[in-house]
Design a protein around this nucleic acid. Sequence first.
DNA 1: TTAGATT
Length: 252
Amino acid sequence: MVTVSYARPSSASIRDANLYVSGLPKTMSQKEMEQLFSQYGRIITSRILVDQVTGVSRGVGFIRFDKRIEAEEAIKGLNGQKPLGAAEPITVKFANNPSQKTGQALLTHLYQSSARRYAGPLHHQTQRFRLDNLLNMAYGVKRFSPIAIDGMSGLAGVGLSGGAAGAGWCIFVYNLSPEADESVLWQLFGPFGAVTNVKVIRDFTTNKCKGFGFVTMTNYDEAAMAIASLNGYRLGERVLQVSFKTSKQHKA
DNA sequence: TTAGATT
């Protein structure tokens, strides 16, 4: 089966008419999203991203308009607005260029391969026990006999993001400078093993780092070693606090 | 002092 269709003309008027939408209600369907945006112009394509495992919406989607001006109007009209009945406002902005980000992936790969040469993954039980004691000290909790536990005891529900596809250990990094960017996180954590994602959390308006970020690492041992090593690490004038991410509830 | 998500 072969599908043949006309290509859309490439010109300035239709370039960059692609929008990235976040904060959508998880219950909103692709059709409903299109209805919301269709008042601003002709929609060429749309998509809502879903969790690979559960199939539930991630609240993030894309809308490609026919014309750039339509996309601009949609941003003006819908960014920061609450869709009817929604609890939270949505964010509407132009989507990133799909071409970039390869440099980042390359960087990661380089760090990983070089780091492995001197600090391979910890598979040996003895190293694991030693590591658990390091972690106890890093967390400042009561120490316990290493013989009684395995590497993951006491960490149930912490750090590990659900789902096979997006699996990994999420690490919270606090006390980054306002100028911090993603590359510093790659550089800090890459030497400890497989890093699949880093994120510096920035203020929406100033674009400055809010003082913290996240790193996702594939393997528990490598994540634990990175935490034990980098917690308390001095970066410039600041001392980093590094731990597995916890879900912090709003204070009472 | 514990997010955002980029087909």
